[in-house]
Amino acid sequence: MSSDTVQKLMALAARQFKAELDKLRPEDDLFEALGIDSFQAVELISELEDEFDVELPDYELQGVKTFAALAAKIDKRR
C-alpha cells in the first residue's frame, strides 16, 4: 500500500465527513474514526472510485475496516 494513497484517502474522508485529519491514523477503523453509518460508507465508496479512478466491487471490501486496508484495495485496482 502506498502511503500516498492512504493519506489521500484519509484527507478525502476527513473533508467529506468533517473529521479532523490530524486525528486519523491508517490503522483506525474508518467507521469509528469518521463516525459514519452504512449509508455514508456507501457514498464514500463512490467518492473514492471517482477520486482514484478505480472500481471497488463490494465483495472485495468484505472485512475491510481500516483506512490502510481500504487504501491497499484501492492500490490493487490501480
Partner: peptide, 10 residues
Amino acid sequence: LSGRSISGKR
C-alpha cells in the same frame, strides 16, 4: 449475479 454496487459515474 454479483450483487455489486456501482457509482453514478459507472
